[in-house]
């Protein structure tokens, strides 16, 4: 320790640099805990039973319909995006040959998709699903928009997971006479499952927290919607409340529910992913 101090004495700039990096880390970590702590402490006192009443009205500003809408939205969006994303990754890893031109295009487009901001998805969803396909502002239009949005996330995590399965598994399976399809579903997918799952959980987190892509595709009606009816998810509910400015306390309570849900989902995703890397050892 004293040796270290002596080096620092001879090189004060090194000491300075070491100190400012430490300050930066402390700032970053402090920001996280401050945001989470502030939102929770401010919102928890307003988490009253009336916020969870079945029907929304301007008096109780209940978030129950929004919660149920969020579940519906997650379910439908995943029903579309999960198979597509997983199948796409299977094609990329198991079927496509090296130097395949299509693969290059798929890579390029998934990267493009992951860079597009959510408001552009919202605009597109509004033009395509809502107006062109005449689905109006509806759960389905919102879910389809979100499905495209989370597709790259699912493709990438599934791809990584499939690649991490050792080739000897596949060779063994072929050697025992199994076909390609059987090899994929029985041999390759099970060990890749936790990686795929962690990607899907991350996708759920994004769907739950999304606002900009939904506001003009799913609309903002505060009721439990059918497939072709408008409904607002929890994040959108919170935006509408804080935008009106009449229910700030209810908005902060909603923020708590939203934040805790999303953070838990993210933590769960990395936990599941960690299980994967442990399994490899």
């Amino acid at each position: 320790m004293s040796e270290k101090m002596r080096t620092y004495k001879a090189h004060p700039m090194s000491l300075l640099f070491s100190i400012i990096t430490k300050i930066a880390v402390i700032i970053t970590i402090a920001i996280f805990f401050f945001i989470v702590g502030y939102v929770i402490i401010r919102g928890v006192p307003y988490l009253t039973p009336s916020l969870f009443e079945w029907e929304y009205n301007t008096e109780n500003a209940s978030m129950m319909p929004a919660i149920i809408t969020t579940f519906e939205m997650v379910g439908i969006a995943l029903l579309i995006a999960a198979p597509l994303g997983v199948f796409c990754a299977i094609y990329l890893v198991e079927y496509a040959k090296k130097g395949n031109k299509l693969v290059k295009w798929i890579r390029l487009t998934t990267e493009t998709l992951s860079g597009i901001p959510s408001i552009i998805y919202g605009l597109f969803g509004n033009m395509f699903f809502v107006i062109f396909l005449q689905w109006r502002l509806s759960l389905l239009a919102g879910a389809c928009t979100l499905a495209i949005m989370v597709l790259p996330l699912i493709i990438r995590s599934t791809e990584e997971a499939l690649k991490s399965v050792d080739d000897s598994f596949r060779e063994g399976s072929y050697g025992l006479g199994a076909g390609k399809l059987r090899t994929i579903f029985v041999i390759v997918l099970p060990p890749a499952m936790s990686g795929i799952l962690s990607g899907i959980i991350l996708a759920v987190g994004r769907i739950v927290g999304e606002t900009a892509a939904l506001i003009y595709t799913a609309g903002t009606v505060a009721k439990i919607p059918g497939l072709f009816e408008s409904g607002r998810t929890l994040a959108l509910h919170m935006y509408v409340l804080s935008n009106e400015g009449l229910h700030m306390n209810e908005a902060s309570a909603t923020a708590v529910v939203l934040l805790v849900t999303v953070l838990l989902l993210n933590a769960l995703a990395s936990l599941v992913a960690k299980k994967l890397s442990k399994g490899e050892k």
Binding site: T28, I29, I31, F32, F33, I35, V36, Y38, V39, G205, V208, G209, E210, T211, A212, A235, M238, Y239, S242, A251, S252, A255, L258, L259, V262, L263, L265, N266, A267, S270
Partner: peptide, 17 residues
């Protein structure tokens, strides 16, 4: 983990904060 979770906070919550 906290740094990664920072990415998970929905933008609407950031806005509210």
């Amino acid at each position: 983990p906290p740094i990664n979770l920072l990415a998970g906070i929905p933008s609407i919550v950031y806005g509210f904060f």
